[in-house]
């Protein structure tokens, strides 16, 4: 769990750079074209990560998004210090770098006119790791959906639980699932969208228990890391192992949906839930 690498560099997609090199097919794409395509490679359909707010703009109708619980940020309750310094310094630097206060942005808005509550994880913030603040926001948003009888959609992008919070981060798995359990009891729709990557403690909690589990093409979705498994079994794993396509084949995903089609797909699903025809 939480085996995201600290060295993960955020792709420098600054406006100064004219070209973006696709991580998968290595082709060079005009930056403007890349951005217009929402960080999806027009050549090979590789879905690169996007920020929470970019995602929200893609999903919600214009000017309908209202952010909730943005006053929540991490706390260094264990005074955790590793080789590279303190957890506190690390998350403060991440807040500065990303402009968001936790690894998830939560709120409500309308998707083609249908109201919904949403939580969108942001991989830039400590590898999208699940800390206490993350779990709190995901639970609070679930509770908001519960109280207001609104469908709940979570976009996951995470390396797993946040080691720097020890077992407190582990407990966020139980905490968020408790929120999902309440939605289930009240028959409130819960849709989980798994994006690259959704691994470790996030895949083993709220991300995998949607009424519907949807994934973006090529997303890495895994419990244990590839290297750990290869060490355990002593052999190489197939290339497509732990991809969205692999999970679809094995029955854990309802559908793989391209980023550009996601909004229409979600509103279409939600229209079935709110069906009031005779």
């Amino acid at each position: 769990m939480a085996w995201y690498s600290e060295t993960t560099t955020v792709k420098k997609n600054s406006k100064k750079e004219l070209w973006v090199k696709c991580k998968k097919c290595q082709s060079h794409i005009y930056n403007t074209e890349w951005q217009e395509n929402h960080n999806v490679c027009p050549n090979c359909n590789y879905h690169d990560s996007i920020t929470s707010y970019e995602r929200i703009n893609l999903i919600f109708d214009e000017n309908t998004f209202v952010e909730l619980f943005d006053n929540i940020s991490p706390a260094d309750s264990l005074n955790f210090v590793d080789l590279k310094g303190s957890y506190k310094d690390k998350y403060e630097a991440n807040i500065k770098k990303t402009g968001i206060s936790e690894s998830v942005v939560t709120g409500h808005g309308k998707i083609n006119g249908i109201p919904a509550v949403i939580a969108v994880m942001d991989f830039r913030f400590l590898g999208g790791s699940l800390g206490s603040g993350t779990g709190e926001k995901i639970l609070q948003a679930a509770n908001y959906a519960y109280d207001n009888n609104l469908p709940y959609i979570v976009f996951s992008a995470s390396g797993g639980a946040r080691m720097q919070e020890g077992a407190l981060s582990l407990m966020q798995m139980a905490k968020t699932c408790a929120g999902v359990a309440r939605l289930n009891k009240k028959n409130i729709p819960y849709i989980s969208v798994l994006t690259n990557p959704t691994t470790g403690g996030v895949s083993a909690s709220y991300a995998m228990v949607g009424d519907l589990n949807i994934a973006e093409p090529g997303a890495l979705i895994a419990f244990a890391g590839r290297r750990v498994i290869e060490q355990t079994i002593g052999e190489k794993l197939p290339d497509d192992f732990q991809t969205a396509e692999y999970l679809l084949e094995h029955g854990f995903i309802d559908s793989i949906v391209n980023r550009k089609d996601m909004k229409a797909y979600l509103s279409n699903i939600l229209s079935f839930y709110s069906n009031k025809s005779n």
Partner: peptide
């Protein structure tokens, strides 16, 4: 820890644990 092996992933280790967390809550 939960077993980190090929067949465990194939049969949905993440889903199995997630489901237990959700069901145990209620």
């Amino acid at each position: 820890g939960a077993f980190p092996g090929l067949e465990a992933e194939e049969r949905g280790q993440a889903e199995a644990i997630a489901k237990n967390l959700t069901e145990m809550a209620s």
